[in-house]
Design a protein around this nucleic acid. Sequence first.
DNA 1: CCAGCCCCCTGTCGGC
DNA 2: TGCCGACAGGGGGCTG
Length: 270
Amino acid sequence: MPELPEVETIVRDLQRPLAGATIRGVDILSESAIAVPTAAEFAAKLPGRRIQGVDRRGKFIILRLEPGVLLVHLRMTGRLLLATNGAEEADPPHLRVALQLDRGRLLFVDTRKFGRLYLAADANAFLGSLGAEPLDPAFTPTALGDCLQGRRACVKSILLDQRVVAGIGNIYADEALFAAGISPARAAGTLSEAEVEALHSAIRSELQRGIHHRGTTFSDYRDAHGRRGGHREFLRVYGRAGQPCSQCGAEIQRSRLGGRSSHYCPRCQR
DNA sequence: CCAGCCCCCTGTCGGC
DNA sequence: TGCCGACAGGGGGCTG
């Protein structure tokens, strides 16, 4: 569910409320939510640690602790919710982990239980294999071109590979390919220099548009305050199969590529 | 390297 | 109405 724009929105929401907060206690309602270390160690080690700040790398939320780091990956249906009011309120459905802070609580809620929390001394073991950060200046058209060159896989599959570019998921991959006028099924290595530049620009602008609207909500995504994102109405292909293309009027198609659904305009994308 | 399959889970929706 | 299969924004692993 949450891709880079959704994770970025949550991180920005959390920065101010969490910076400087101290973890007082941990409630683990679903042990499978803890990837590393064991659930018992996780619960034993966190109390007393202070949250220094909140960052993002790809789709990972990074709570910088003193000492160590707590990484959160929301996968499909995970949410990280602030419950800052002092009054006791009922736990939300599918609450998996609750961090008691010196100011309120931070709740990890996850219907499908795919999301994971990682507590470690440093983040490198889990973030080291991630590819370029697409909104970073180091992500240039040349850098993207180098990743695509010689690859026979379809360009969409490459965009979804977190080792190549970190943070793109199914929605923004489809939207960026539409914005660039490139078919998701094109073999990555066949893109011209101009197409690589158009794709690079489209990836950035589509992600930034998503952030501007505080993310895309279909059903599950919520920000740290439990609110929906506003970007859905701005999507041009994702979720619009059968509807006319906003540019040319042709019917938006949907097909399966690499096990994921893909949405595209057969006339605008080549 | 790559396509295609499986798995992890739960909820929702469409067809019959 | 009720049941059943398909499908969902992610990612890891396996096979051929």
